[in-house]
């Protein structure tokens, strides 16, 4: 059986998890390619104008997969707990895809912990849909969890080590993984930052155990889980980095307010808020990043003197 995975949205968060799970169930995985202009265009053509850039990219990836696999994996997430919600885009993506591309075959799973639909139940149900035995599904789930944890911990530790050892200028990048790791949206920014001899530190790879408690120091009533993780990382890293860069896609709902709170509450550290849209001109972006880095460097020189 061929299962398609769109390279967008939650793929960047759950890739090890999904890939292991599906491989353990003997499914063949078809991954859509890195985002390119054609995929973005397809996505824009098939989205409501006011959807966020990330959603448009995702729609493009789904379109690419149509006809190339038996099912397309489509998670639907509502809540991980009472005050742990996600953006409503993740509530609705399944239905949006279904209404946009008629007749598309989707393999969906639903996580809504408030209503008792846990991740475990969701994956067991998925195994059943794929006509696998309960035992095999259970094993695959366990294995996927293990691999995911292993990989995530390893990446987090590597970054932690890098932060301690490196002497170059460090910028904390606060952005959803689906934006910053995307070939077309976020990668050019990271590449440019690296070209300026700056070490990018990713907020999302910080261990979630640490970040999930620390977010409270910045915002008490926040209820978006993914944003909690990101701003928890700010608290974790703020004394170890030279600046913070917020990267968000237009018009991201949660980011529009959470970043505002951060910009207003965090003091004594340089910050820049970059909002990306589908018309992004490179030159303007480069100038902004360059001057941001220049300011930090000059400031450091003055402090040293």
């Amino acid at each position: 059986m061929k299962i398609g995975i769109p390279r967008g949205f939650l793929y960047f968060k759950y890739k090890y998890f999904w890939e292991t799970f599906l491989k353990e169930l003997d499914c063949e995985i078809v991954l859509s390619p890195m985002t390119n202009k054609a995929i973005l265009k397809e996505g824009i053509d098939n989205s409501i104008d006011e959807s966020c850039l990330s959603a448009k990219v995702y729609m493009g990836h789904v379109k690419w997969l149509v006809g190339k696999c038996d099912y397309i994996l489509m998670p639907r997430i509502d809540s991980f707990g009472k005050c742990d919600k996600v953006c409503t885009k993740f509530n609705a993506m399944y239905d949006i895809v279904r209404n946009t591309y008629e007749g598309v075959e989707l393999l969906d799973y639903n996580i809504d912990c408030v209503k008792g639909c846990t991740e475990f139940k969701a994956f067991m149900r998925m195994g059943k849909l794929l006509k696998k035995s309960k035992m095999q599904t259970y094993r695959a789930y366990k294995r996927a969890k293990e691999v995911n944890k292993e990989k995530k911990t390893k990446i987090a530790e590597e970054q932690e080590k890098l932060v301690q050892e490196s002497d170059s200028l460090k910028i904390l990048i606060v952005a959803h993984p689906y934006n910053i790791y995307d070939k077309l949206i976020g990668e050019p920014i990271v590449k440019y930052v690296e070209k300026l001899d700056v070490l990018p530190i990713y907020a999302d790879v910080t261990s979630t155990k640490k970040t999930r408690i620390k977010y409270k120091e910045l915002s008490s009533s926040l209820y978006w889980t993914y944003n909690k993780e990101l701003i928890g990382a700010i608290e974790h890293y703020k004394n170890k980095v030279d600046g913070i860069m917020f990267v968000t896609a237009f018009p991201c709902g949660p980011d529009s307010m959470v970043n505002e709170i951060c910009l207003r509450r965090i003091k004594n550290i340089p910050m820049i808020n970059i909002v990306l849209d589908e018309l992004q001109g490179e030159a303007g972006l480069h100038t902004r990043i360059e001057s941001f880095i220049d300011i930090i460097r000059e400031k450091k020189k003055v402090v040293k003197k």
Binding site: E50, C87, N91, A92, D95, I96, N99
Partner: peptide, 14 residues
């Protein structure tokens, strides 16, 4: 403008 849930509802309305 940009209301997330209502933008979600638009493909169904179409």
């Amino acid at each position: 403008f940009g209301c997330m849930p209502e933008v979600n509802a638009m493909p169904m309305l179409q």
